[in-house]
Amino acid sequence: MNKNKQHIDEQILLSILNQKASEQDAETFEKWMASHPENKAVFDKMRKIWEKSSEIEVFDKIDVAADWKLVKSKSGASVKSRKLKVFMRYAASIVLLMGLSFVLLYQTTPGFGKLAQQKTEINKDQVLLADGTQVYLNERSRLVYPNQFGSKKRNVKLEGEAYFQVKSDPSKPFIITSGNAIIEVLGTAFNVRNDEYGRTIVTVQSGKVSLTDQKTKKVVYLTKGEKGILHDSNLTESENDEPNFDAWKTGILRFNKTPIPVVFKYIEDYYGVKITNRCERIDTLTFNSIFDNDDIKDVISELELHLNVKTVKRGKHLIVSERNN
């Protein structure tokens, strides 16, 4: 143990949290905080847990004085032993810490109390939230949400990618935390994606969405047909130039004079394959077609016919090369 790390009486910490500390206790507390960097971190955690506990109704019903009076009456008037007082002090501290730990678990652990979560790996999934909002989760994504929303806001947290159809409620904003972005809406349909480059991309299909950087507080407002990108505190907005942004959800890939390298990228993303192009001739060509939930075999056949190439499939790897006529 670090010799410079001072001990502090738990009752002083409780008096600080209760905002009932005497001047002497406050001075002792300040010295303890300054004595070691770890003390501040420990107290900050305790304070956060304490603040969370104020939201639980059962804690408001605890009458410490009455409980202590009852203990003394049942133990006899001579309950003045120093050992008993020390024991009761530490017992109370343990009960308090257990209670605060329970509150922290209840407030912050998905599946334990007020929060639930939906997590996907190789499959996609749908979640119907308590307010009627429909969420479509892409593969390798995670949504954390409350079993019941509060009276003022609807807060959820997203990792990965999801498409939201938010139930309209002008009195209760729907707020998504995703990476360093905060997305706020009242009722609309839009897609949120965290990509491999650390970007958060919001694409709006209907309604209006605000996209905010948590660090800089910069904000952009997006409407139908627009997208916003947050990357390393750089926030941009533009028209949506990705017709297949929601292909993972709809199963529809649309190509209209699309350059072949871009076509291959969309096919890789949607079908989970790797394409190696050994035919430089087709890099300058474009492609027109619509694939509506088609099997990858049918996609390959159409590409071979349109581009006059041959394709060899080895597991998840597609090799495109010149056709020998």
Results as ranks from 00 to 15, higher is better:
Asn293Cys: 11
Arg199Leu: 00
Leu303Thr: 03
Asn234Pro: 02
Asn138Arg: 02
Ile229Gln: 01
Gln11Ser: 13
Gln19Ala: 13
Thr223Ser: 01
Val309Gln: 09
Leu303Met: 15
Gly160Lys: 04
Glu268Thr: 06
Tyr145Asn: 06
Ser75Ile: 05
Thr286Asn: 12
Asn180Val: 03
Gln126Trp: 07
Arg314Ala: 11
Ser22Cys: 08
Gln107Tyr: 13
Gly272Asp: 07
Gly198Ile: 04
Arg281Asn: 13
Asp295Ile: 04
Ala247Gly: 05
Ala77Leu: 10
Glu280Asp: 15
Ile176Leu: 08
Pro243Phe: 06
Arg278His: 14
Asn147Ala: 10
Leu143Thr: 06
Tyr271Asp: 04
Gln148Cys: 01
Thr258Gln: 09
Phe245Ile: 15
Glu302Met: 14
His36Asn: 14
Leu143Tyr: 03
Ile12Glu: 08
Thr109Asp: 03
Lys217Gln: 15
Glu242Asp: 15
Arg82Pro: 13
Gly179Tyr: 05
Gly150Ser: 15
Thr120Gly: 09
Asp125Val: 00
Arg199Ser: 11
Ser81Trp: 10
Ile319Pro: 00
Ala116Val: 03
Leu137Gln: 08
Lys153Thr: 15
Ile12Gly: 05
Ile275Ser: 08
Lys3Ala: 14
Ile94Cys: 00
Phe245Ser: 10
Asp60Leu: 06
Pro110Ala: 04
Thr276Met: 06
Phe112Val: 15
Thr258Tyr: 01
Pro170Ser: 02
Leu84Asp: 06
Ile267Gln: 05
Ile16Gln: 11
Leu303Ala: 03
Asp241Phe: 12
Trp32Val: 06
Arg89Ile: 00
Glu30Ser: 14
Thr216Trp: 01
Tyr90Asn: 12
Ala130Leu: 01
Thr258Ala: 07
Gly113Cys: 00
Glu184Phe: 04
Asn308Pro: 04
Ala247Ile: 02
Ala130Phe: 01
Leu186Ile: 09
Ser289Trp: 03
Lys297Phe: 02
Ser168Gly: 02
Thr250Phe: 08
Leu96Asp: 00
Leu253Gly: 05
Lys31His: 13
Val185Tyr: 03
Ser321Asp: 06
Thr177Ile: 11
Val273Gln: 06
Phe264Tyr: 13
Ser75Ala: 14
Ser238Tyr: 05
Arg199Asp: 05
Lys218Leu: 06
Ser22Phe: 10
Gly272Pro: 04
Lys313Thr: 15
